[in-house]
Design a protein around this nucleic acid. Sequence first.
DNA 1: ACCTGAACACCGTTCAAGT
DNA 2: ACCTGAACACCGTTCAAGT
Lengths: 187, 187
Amino acid sequence: MPAPARTSTEAVVAAGRAILEREGLAGLTMQAVATEVGVRAPSLYKRVRDRAALVGLVVDAVAGELAERLEQAASTGDPQRDLRALAAAFRSFAHANPAAYPLLFDPRSGGPSPEALGASSAAVLRVSADLAGEHHALAAARTVVAWATGFLSMELAGAFRLGGDVDEAWEYGVTGLARALGRDSNG
Amino acid sequence: MPAPARTSTEAVVAAGRAILEREGLAGLTMQAVATEVGVRAPSLYKRVRDRAALVGLVVDAVAGELAERLEQAASTGDPQRDLRALAAAFRSFAHANPAAYPLLFDPRSGGPSPEALGASSAAVLRVSADLAGEHHALAAARTVVAWATGFLSMELAGAFRLGGDVDEAWEYGVTGLARALGRDSNG
DNA sequence: ACCTGAACACCGTTCAAGT
DNA sequence: ACCTGAACACCGTTCAAGT
């Protein structure tokens, strides 16, 4: 009477993430996930409460991986270089996860868990403190992340349709922010 | 045999927008819109091709209204003041349209039409040119809009969960951007 | 303890039939 | 010319029944 588990929460989340990138959020159905892990849709409810919870777990997994990338990126100790490295890490992560990335900041997805959020914030906060001073660290970090995530959302959405060079606009932005944060902000 | 029209595309779009804010994107169903305009769901297909097209029309309407607000806001002629006014207009519009605003930059909504996009961009481009010089106008405008939209997406998503004062972070960002765009950028 | 088929409510969409 | 009921495919979710 036992009954062998034919899948796992990790497998379900991994499948969800793969399908999300392959088919988009609308394609991330319970049936599609069930098929991918080799089970029938109702069985998924042994692993996750409902579809929203599944999406939440996927978002958390993505946030965790982003945190790793940011941590690896901001490691030179030179605040100006680290800021540029953080920005580059954000952008390459977004390009590699175009469907998942916008979900991290989507009002409708609940957002990442506090833990995942904290992990993702750590590296940015550290560099922001180095650059803008402890007193302005939080506001500076929010400015950087807001710019990066807004830019990348727009880039992924194809919202830059007035011509011009998108890479150049990105470069302009990083440079401007590095300058803005680094000036007479040693509060 | 004629057959009186019992609704109109404008009424459908207005209903869609109202329901979007009341019930969220998931609540914006063809049935809900049909009920609101006093018709049965299949009749909506005389006005819009499908649900995605309806959402697109709603997004366009919202983009058009945002363009008006931005145009009204940036009118003092002083670039620094106009930039702050633009930022304030973005934020109050987002707060007034919390469900619709993120859709403007959502990869999944197709985004606003080129016309609506152009109208929304005009005021920001003008102020950016005044501030950063014609040569950097586009990159500067993209920096400002990216920051504002990213900040507001995060604010609406409840992503600022590390404490601190959100208004202060906004203020810090505007000030930093105004400084960054206005310095030695007269290319 | 987990898996399944069957069932239900709900949604988008099509279409023949009405006026 | 527009509106409608009926129908279809599809989806999330529940649950009793299997092992």
